[in-house]
Simulated assay, not measured.
Amino acid sequence: MTELAITHIGGPTTLIEIGGWQLLTDPTFDPPGGLYRFGWGTSSRKLTGPAIAAVDLPPIDAVLISHDGHGDNLDPAGRRLLPTAATVLTTVSGARRLGGNARGLAPWATATLAAPGRPTVQITATPGRHGPPLSRAIVGDVIGFDVRWPGGSVWISGDTVLYDGLHEVAKRLDIDVAVIHMGGVRFPISGPIRYTMLARDAVELCELVRPRVVIPVHYEGWKHFQQPREAIEREFATAPAATRDGLRWLTPGERTAL
């Protein structure tokens, strides 16, 4: 059986190990304290640093970037490590901006990792919407990633709200482990508008995709994350049994076999 292990590094950043493959998601490795501007009058401060330094990572086969325009998903230190990876997968527009070894994937496009002695891994971009309807012109494109190999799968939602595109994910994919970006992101300038899922949205999503394991990420470490672990736990505590029992918290920096 192919071993799957995930290490939560902080924010949206995880190291995913699949039968010898090393995949890194949304790399953020800057120290805490910096102020990051996201455009249109929005900004946020980083509150905690990564649980693992970039220099301590193993050689990375693929970096999966849900979107390149926001510092809480790709910061300067994260950008500096991209040339060291074998490949970088992101949105089509993001690949044009990043250049180098970046490859753009439109929703439902695929890329394949293959090497002797390792399982073949298929990575499919899944749709996302980083805010309310018509927000794409402001916040840009975003994708998630379905990572699949013989006998297993991991789906990373990316920064997205719950909308019809995720219902399509539920229809198309049989998901084993779901890594869901939460945090209920919002900014004072845009009032109550949310740019990522609240815990109640994640519960509804899990009822649709029915993963065996649910791993929250993107809920801590930044000022603009509005819903911490305690709020997520309260929401999942009242969820149906299969969803409630599937919730799995990863200790930052600790490798967890799944």
Rank of each mutant, 00 (worst) to 15 (best):
P50E: 06
P50N: 08
A51V: 14
A53I: 06
A54C: 06
V55K: 10
L57A: 02
L57C: 03
P58F: 02
D61N: 13
A62W: 15
A62S: 15
A62P: 05
L64Y: 04
S66F: 11
D68K: 12
D68R: 10
D68M: 10
G69Q: 12
G71N: 12
D72S: 09
N73T: 14
N73K: 10
D75Q: 13
P76Q: 09
P83A: 04
T87Q: 05
L89V: 07
L89Y: 10
T90D: 02
T91M: 09
T91C: 09
T91D: 12
T91W: 12
G94V: 01
A95L: 05
L98R: 03
G99K: 04
G100E: 14
G100L: 15
A102K: 01
L105D: 06
P107A: 13
W108E: 07
W108V: 04
T110A: 02
L113T: 05
A114W: 00
P116K: 02
R118I: 08
P119Y: 03
T120H: 02
T120L: 04
T120Q: 10
T120A: 10
I123C: 01
T124G: 07
T124Q: 10
A125N: 00
T126K: 01
T126Q: 03
T126S: 06
G128K: 06
G128W: 04
G128D: 07
G128Y: 05
R129I: 05
P132M: 11
L134F: 06
R136D: 06
R136W: 07
V139T: 11
V139L: 13
V139P: 09
G140I: 03
D141K: 09
D141H: 13
D141L: 12
I143D: 03
G144P: 01
G144E: 01
G144W: 00
F145M: 00
D146Q: 12
D146M: 15
R148D: 14
W149E: 03
G151T: 00
G152V: 00
G152F: 02
G158M: 12
V161R: 15
L162C: 09
Y163W: 15
L166D: 03
V169T: 07
A170M: 01
A170V: 00
K171M: 10
K171P: 09
